[in-house]
Computed example of a mutant assay.
Amino acid sequence: MTARLTARDRWLLHALFDHDVFTTAQIALATGTGTRSTQRTLRRLYDLGVLDSFRPYLEVGSAPEHYTLGPAGAVVLAAERAVDLKALGWRADRSARIAHSPWLGHDVARNDLMVRLAADHHTDAARRLTLWACERVCATLWGDHVHPDAYAHYRHHPPGDPGRGGGRAVAFFLEYDTGTTALARVDAKLAGYAGLAASTHPPTPTLVLIHTSTPRREAALRNRLQPTATTLGVPVATTHHALTDGGSPSDAVWLPLAGTAARTALLELPTHYRHPGPAPTAPGTWTPDPDDESNPGALRWPPAPPLPPTRTAVPGRGRG
């Protein structure tokens, strides 16, 4: 079976292990392929047992197919990582647990936002989401301070720029707010971000993006958070679903909490704050090197790349 898996198939297994669930449309967007081609690929992987799938119940209409890591896919990942399924953290009831999770809608919507950000690269090769760390990785690295829904690096390199000195980049934590959490609870999270920034020398705050449900909810959040963010020195920007639905989250949809009245593009947000930077990690954290005793901060299994490898022609097998 493993001989029938392409490099892009394997990428999907790793991505589903990280992010739990994607819809057909999200996978098509991430891979840059048409819906029918994506459906054929997913059906093949489902028939192999590499993927599992379900459709959530809706009182009106029908939900899209949702895909999760299947039992054969978990075996492949465990073999690649030289561990058993228990050590991998995969359970036989994983798909059922995801399907019936009260957080399913939240997780699918968060993944949709991040996938659309990653897909910018398909229309503009100078733009790339270079890192997307899932909630589980964030808890491992920064759980003593914060529990964001994601952490990411996004950059733009002009044509011909080798990636040194030119271009722009932004690192951010994402809080995906569906409007059901008490404002006081959201406000209390800022103390954790301030504490994380203070753990470095000199203190380096990391941008916190809050995506919420409606304009009214965004206004309420901003009124509640602004005094706290100003006092603690936490750089925060907000947006809401109507502004990001169907477009790229990198567009001018973010409103800094720093008093400006203008919506700002993602890559412009750092200019509104004093020296924001990436979240603190040990050197080599994002590099897979679990046996390097000199680098205890390295993750055993770093996040999957936000996009699959480029398609390449393989002799005798078509495109992989």
Rank of each mutant, 00 (worst) to 15 (best):
A3M: 13
D9A: 04
D9N: 04
D9P: 04
W11Y: 11
L12T: 02
L13V: 09
A15M: 12
D18I: 12
H19M: 11
H19Q: 14
T24L: 15
A25E: 13
L29F: 08
L29V: 11
G32Y: 10
R36M: 13
R36N: 14
S37P: 03
S37G: 12
T38A: 14
T38D: 08
D52T: 15
R55H: 10
L58W: 09
G61W: 05
S62E: 14
A74H: 05
R81D: 13
G89Y: 06
A92K: 10
D93N: 14
R94N: 03
R94A: 05
R97D: 06
I98N: 01
H100C: 09
W103N: 14
G105D: 04
A109Y: 02
L117C: 11
T123R: 13
A125D: 15
A126P: 11
R127N: 10
L129G: 06
L131I: 13
W132I: 07
E135M: 09
E135A: 12
T140L: 15
T140D: 15
D144M: 06
H145N: 03
H147W: 09
D149L: 09
Y151P: 02
G160M: 04
P162W: 02
G166M: 00
L174P: 00
T180H: 11
L183F: 01
R185F: 05
V186R: 03
L190P: 06
A194C: 04
G195L: 05
L196R: 01
A198D: 10
P205V: 02
V208W: 00
L209I: 00
T214V: 13
N223E: 15
N223Q: 14
R224G: 07
R224W: 05
Q226E: 14
T228D: 09
L232S: 09
H240C: 04
H241S: 13
A242K: 11
L243T: 01
P249A: 01
W254Q: 00
G259Y: 05
A261G: 15
A262R: 15
A262M: 11
T264Q: 02
A265L: 01
A265Y: 05
A265G: 11
L266F: 07
L267I: 10
L269R: 00
G277I: 13
T281D: 12
A282C: 13
P283G: 09
G284K: 08
T285Y: 14
T285N: 12
P290I: 11
E293W: 09
E293G: 08
E293C: 11
P296E: 08
G297T: 12
L299D: 04
R300C: 09
P302F: 09
P303L: 03
P306Q: 05
L307P: 02
P308F: 08
P309M: 07
T310R: 13
T312K: 05
A313K: 13
P315S: 07
G316H: 02
